[in-house]
Design a binder for these strands. Structure first.
Length: 259
DNA sequence: CCAGACGTTGTT
DNA sequence: GTCTGG
DNA sequence: CCAGACGTTGTT
DNA sequence: GTCTGG
């Protein structure tokens, strides 16, 4: 899953060096320490038009352009926080966006919950170099027929989990992470559908990621959670007992985990 | 042909 | 808007 | 994932 | 028991 994530722009020079974003655009990004998908916050995304990358703030939760009423749009934006990468070119809600409206979702880390003995332990998953990384996304625009307002929205693509995240929460789905080279190709509208499928089928090496346990919090309290310390390391000594006996946690994966 | 769907995966 | 199911 | 619902009738 | 909504 990916329903909660954060954006911290520090240590993100690599994005500038790789020409995904300009130094000026990077400076415009505001830190968000906790975005709850169901709050549909406006978050920074990068899209490409006329051979240039644009930084936009779009609302998380894709509303397909064909929606007629506000209540219909509400239902869609709640279920379309994520889109399964395997089927974006087939699903009516995503087909149009997948072909012509792809974007990169900037993210410094996201939140997962490990179930240990029936208790939930929150983890923050980020890059070992603490940089900002990019997810594959799609966007759409929807016109509210009552107010006339145009709403721009996006969804984060998901794929099968890699070993680190799969062993951590056993939910089988994680965001599609892109390397910088693929990221440029991904948002280029000229890139072929088969190339997009090839790119989104790749999976990040788990060695690049780290997962650290953090203090418990109530995900519903969006405002209260939006503080930097939400992703600070918090130790749960009892966690080692679960991980030690979990056959999915080999030594290499365990070295990427902090708990 | 028309009516109805159109989608993902989750916490204190 | 466009596909699916009846 | 958990909480809450879970249904019917009638007319040109 | 099983689907729906959040």
């Amino acid at each position: 899953m990916c329903f909660f994530y954060s954006v911290k722009k520090e240590k993100s020079e690599e994005l500038v060096i790789n020409n995904l974003i300009t130094q000026h655009q990077l400076s415009l990004i505001e830190d968000v320490y906790f975005a709850n998908g169901f709050s549909h916050l406006k978050m920074p995304v990068l899209l490409r038009e006329n051979n240039e990358n644009y930084l936009k703030y779009y609302s998380w939760g894709l509303i397909p352009g064909f929606c007629k009423t506000e209540s219909e749009a509400e239902r869609f934006r709640n279920m379309n926080l994520n889109a399964r990468s395997e089927t974006i070119f087939e699903k009516k809600s995503f087909e149009n966006a997948a072909k012509k409206m792809r974007c990169l979702v900037l993210c410094s880390g996201f939140f997962e919950f490990y179930d240990g003995g029936g208790k939930k332990y929150p983890f923050f998953i980020s890059l070992k170099n603490n940089g900002l990384f990019v997810f594959a996304g799609i966007w759409d625009s929807w016109i509210n027929r009552v107010s006339g307002e145009t709403v721009h929205t996006f969804s984060i693509l998901t794929q099968e989990t890699n070993s680190l995240i799969g062993a951590l929460h056993k939910k089988h789905r994680m965001p599609v992470f892109l390397n910088f080279d693929d990221a440029q190709k991904y948002i280029n509208p000229e890139t072929s559908q088969s190339k997009i499928i090839e790119i989104t089928n790749k999976r990040i090496e788990f060695e690049k990621l780290k997962a650290q346990s953090i203090a418990r919090f109530n995900p519903k309290m969006s405002e209260q959670n939006n503080v930097e310390k939400i992703s600070a390391f918090y130790s749960y000594p009892e966690l080692s007992q679960y991980f030690r006996y979990d056959k999915d946690f080999n030594d290499e994966i365990r070295s990427s985990l902090l708990y």
